[in-house]
């Protein structure tokens, strides 16, 4: 029982970056763009989210003051969003304005972002003389919270009320996005653009503006997911290749959550659980590689299962992968 409780809590923590990546990609795909650069944007967010607080800390310490954890966390949030959004802007400019192939552009963004993240990560290490790590004050801003009263409730307290702030941020974002896509005019317009840009255009919706906005904000959210990897998962230390596949898992999770932000919550916790299973349910004699293979193998199985039984309402937005070119209607 206690093991299961620990596993559930660890699954939520491990699933949060997946959730953020998935949410970013859902928003992007709802506008009819498949951005396979999630991994790259997460890397860009990871390094930006680590390096800005890092330099902030250096500067305040040099000035003889002590850095504030809250300020550092806000900077990490803003910087990682900006970095992810910047990656998405490159993607958007190439695909929306210049009609480049979405698949190849996204892949290139992944290569570019991975390179950029590791490049500046190593560079930061040289600057810090070894490896880049944050001080205690800034790191503690990303520690698990202890909410007086609530966190002490048996079982429920551990299950719901003792995570770091980013977990709650991601959950609220998922619920808000769910509301936005289903219940607001802007959200419905966005979905119309993703399903049939020509019809949306004819109805007077500015498709270009919707696509750019969705792609850029989506990329920013992916960037925040990357920041979770460098600030929480590796606790404020740059680890080479720290995002390692989480971006790609996020792209797959979009399919499992059938483009629904609320279902992404569940999908992210399940896959978060798969990535940490080895620590909580060890089976003697089983090679750890079997555990490490699990998230990827399960992804493949679910991909196959969902392709065998496809339903109309559970499909990708129809214009995904195809660039809309007004002059070619």
């Amino acid at each position: 029982m206690n093991t299961l409780l620990n596993l559930a809590a660890a699954a939520v923590l491990a699933g949060t970056p997946l959730l953020l990546g998935t949410l970013g990609e859902i928003l992007t795909e709802k506008s009819g763009n498949i951005n396979l650069g999630v991994e790259g944007m997460m890397f860009m967010g990871a390094i930006a989210g680590l390096s800005v607080p890092f330099f902030y800390e250096q500067l305040t310490l040099e000035a003889g003051a002590s850095p504030s954890g809250t300020a550092g966390a806000l900077m990490a949030l803003a910087a990682s969003f900006a970095a992810g959004a910047f990656g998405a802007l490159i993607y958007g400019f190439l695909t929306i304005t210049l009609h480049a192939d979405q698949n190849v552009t996204g892949l290139t963004l992944t290569i570019f972002g991975t390179g950029l993240g590791n490049f500046f990560g190593e560079y930061l290490g040289y600057q810090a003389g070894g490896y880049a790590a944050l001080g205690e004050e800034l790191k503690s801003a990303f520690h698990n919270l202890s909410i007086p009263g609530l966190s002490q409730i048996p079982v429920l307290g551990k299950l719901l009320f003792q995570y770091n702030w980013m977990v709650y941020f991601a959950v609220i974002l998922a619920l808000a996005m769910n509301h936005f896509l289903r219940r607001t005019r802007l959200g419905l317009n966005l979905r119309a653009v993703g399903e049939d840009p020509a019809a949306a255009d004819a109805a007077g919706i500015n498709t270009t503006r919707y696509q750019y906005t969705a792609v850029i904000i989506g990329g920013g959210i992916c960037g925040i997911g990357g920041m979770y990897m460098s600030m929480v998962t590796t606790s404020g230390v740059w680890v080479h290749n720290c995002v390692s596949g989480y971006g790609w898992l996020s792209v797959a999770l979009v399919i499992f959550s059938v483009w629904n932000p609320a279902r992404a919550l569940l999908a992210a916790v399940i896959f978060g659980g798969l990535t940490v299973l080895r620590l909580y349910l060890p089976i003697p004699g089983m090679p750890i590689q079997i555990y490490e293979m699990l998230p990827y193998a399960v992804t493949i199985l679910v991909l196959i299962a969902s392709s065998i039984r496809q339903r109309r309402e559970n499909m990708q937005p129809k214009s995904c992968g195809v660039n809309y070119f007004r002059e070619e209607r």
Binding site: T114, G115, L116
Partner: peptide, 8 residues
């Protein structure tokens, strides 16, 4: 990693 950045 500069080579990846440049290729990108």
């Amino acid at each position: 990693s500069a080579s990846e950045v440049l290729t990108g």
